[in-house]
Amino acid sequence: MVGIIIISHGRFASGLLDAVSMITGEQKQIQAIAFNESQSPEDLKKNVEDSLSLIDMGEGVLIFTDLFGATPFNVAMRIYMESNRKIEVIAGVNLPIVLEAVLCREKEDLGSIYKYVLDVGVDSIKTIPKEIRKK
């Protein structure tokens, strides 16, 4: 099964994981990593690498980060470029995208999960439906 790592500024990732568990029940091979204000990118990279070795069973890992171009994403990119593991990285994580990844990862491989959830994520930002919106 594909592993999942969520990396965020502060405790957003662990909060997200908490929400995922509330909806889907306790999950395996999934970890949340917080990037704290006193940490260096090198410290964060080490945490992510430690987590990867725990979570990657050979089928690869999908890494979610909170913000494109920010340190959690930059660190994930660095690991993606240096590592021999199967890794995909998606920035701008939200609850729908993680839920989708959690639900489809038992049957699908990393390549197809990654493409599928990217579409789901982009499509998950919604507003008040037309039928309901006040005139």
Partner: peptide
């Protein structure tokens, strides 16, 4: 900044 380009710089 030892993080170089990152969230605070890009956003704020």
């Amino acid at each position: 900044d030892n993080r170089l380009i990152h969230g605070q710089v890009l956003v704020s």
